[in-house]
Amino acid sequence: MVANLADVTPGSKVRVVEIRGGLGIRQRLSCLGIHPGDLMIVQASGIMRGPVLVSIHDNKVALGRGVASKILVEVIN
């Protein structure tokens, strides 16, 4: 099932399918180790459309709601 990261419930394991949005956002995500094909776990989601916390490659990264909604992921379980 493909969804955007902002809509995934915390606790899910996901695989990055596609990163939409401009060059800036793609490059900054790739710097933090987020590329298409990578696995991540959605850890928490802030209240009132707050940011999403994911763990990727043994590291935690906070993504603003706008950024998260540009990342298409496939929910694995």
Partner: peptide
Amino acid sequence: VTPGMIMEIP
């Protein structure tokens, strides 16, 4: 529109 947060949590 602000570019949105991408931040490492150490």
